[in-house]
Design a protein around this nucleic acid. Structure first.
Lengths: 197, 197
DNA sequence: GTCTATACACAGATAGAC
DNA sequence: GTCTATCTGTGTATAGAC
C-alpha cells in the first residue's frame, strides 16, 4: 500500500459536500472548503482545476452511490405493487438518512448554469428515471408514463424539500419526520387515491 | 397625485425579482440589481437598508399577490372534489405562467439563514396551507391532514421544479409543459390512485 | 503536496457632493 | 434621490518557495 497523503481528493470531497449541501454553489467559497479540510485554498487547486470541478465531483460522488443502489432495487422481479413499495421505502429512507444527498438534489434542480447542469445530470438520473417510468406503465394505462414518474418522485421528494418550512406550519408533528410514517402515507395515497370507490 | 420618481421601491423590486428568481440570493449582487434598474448601487441603499431587506421584500411582493388569490379560491363553498380541482387548476396555471414565483418558492425552501427564512415565511404560507389541510380532511379519514397537504402541494410543485432536468429525461414531450396536461394528470392520480378497484 | 504571498476582480456598504 | 468616490472584506486563482 502506497503512502497516501492525509488530504486526498476523496477526503476533500467529503469535507466539501456538507457545505455545498447547506449553502449551494454560490454560498460556498474555496476558502470555506479549504478551512473545512484544514488546508489553504491553494492546496485545493492542486487536486481540482477550479471550483466548478470540485463542486461537480462532490455532487457526483454523492449521487453515484445512491443511484447505483436504486438501480439494483428496480431490477428485482417482484410484482409492480411490491416493486413500487420497495422503491418508495428505499427512497424515503435514503432521503431521511442522508440530508446532504437530499439537499444537493434540490440545488441541482435550481442550477442556472446550463453547462454545469449538463455535467451534473449526465449519466446519473437517466437510468433510474427510465426504470421508474417503466414501472409506472404496469399500472393504469391512462397515465402518461413520463408524468407519472415525475409525480412519484415529487411526491416523495417534497416531503423532505419542504421540511424546514413545513415545521412552521399548522398540524406539524414529530412523527412526520419518521421514514415509516412518510412511506406509509405516500404508498397509501399513491395506490388508492383520495376518493372512495 | 404627487410626482413619483422614475425609480421608486416597487420599480426596483420588479427589476430585482427575475434576477433573484434565476440565481438566488447568493447569486445576485447589489451591483447586478443596480444595473438592471439603471442606477448605481448607492441609490438602492436609499430605498432599502441592506441586501436582505431588498431580497425579502422582492419575495414577499411576489408571494403576497399569489397567496391572496389562493385564499379567495379556497374560500368558495363548492363540494370538496370540486374545490380540490379548482385549487390544482389555479396552482398549476400560476406556476406555469409566473416562473419567477415558481423559482422563488424553490429558493425559499433552500434558504439556510434561519432569520431570513423566518421573515420569508411569516404570514404567507400559513393561511393557505391551513386551508388545504382542512380541505384534505373532507376525504378519507385515514390520511394525516398535514401529510396530505404536503403531498398535494408537492405533487403539483414538483412538475415545475423538475422542469429543467425533466426535459433531459426519456419520454419528455412538449405537451408536458402545458397547464391543462399537468392538471388533468394530477387530479386523476390524486383522486383515483394507481390501482384498479 | 502544501505552503506563503499575492494578483486582481468583485462583494456589501457608506460619506458627502449635487 | 442619485451620483462619484471610496472603504474594507472576500472572491477565484496563480507563482514560486519548501
Amino acid at each position: 500500500m502506497k503512502k497516501s497523503p492525509r488530504t486526498n481528493p476523496q477526503h476533500i470531497l467529503e469535507r466539501a459536500t456538507p457545505l455545498f449541501a447547506r449553502h449551494g454553489y454560490d454560498g460556498v467559497s474555496m476558502r470555506d472548503v479549504a478551512a473545512a479540510v484544514g488546508v489553504t485554498p491553494a492546496a485545493l487547486y492542486h487536486h481540482f482545476k477550479d471550483k466548478d470541478e470540485l463542486y461537480i465531483q462532490a455532487v457526483n460522488h454523492v449521487f453515484g452511490k445512491k443511484f447505483s443502489d436504486a438501480k439494483a432495487i428496480m431490477a428485482d422481479n417482484d410484482e409492480p405493487v411490491k416493486r413500487l413499495e420497495t422503491f418508495i421505502t428505499w427512497f424515503v429512507r435514503v432521503l431521511n438518512k442522508d440530508k446532504d444527498f437530499q439537499k444537493l438534489l434540490q440545488w441541482v434542480m435550481l442550477d442556472s448554469d446550463p453547462r454545469r447542469l449538463q455535467k451534473l445530470t449526465k449519466n446519473t438520473f437517466q437510468e433510474l428515471f427510465a426504470a421508474i417510468q417503466k414501472l409506472g406503465e404496469s399500472f393504469k394505462q391512462q397515465y402518461d408514463p413520463h408524468l407519472l414518474a415525475v409525480s412519484i418522485i415529487g411526491l416523495v421528494l417534497y416531503h423532505f424539500e419542504s421540511s424546514a418550512v413545513r415545521k412552521k406550519l399548522p398540524g406539524s408533528r414529530a412523527t412526520h419526520d419518521q421514514a415509516k410514517t412518510i412511506t406509509l402515507h405516500i404508498t397509501a395515497l399513491l395506490e388508492n387515491g383520495l376518493l372512495t370507490h
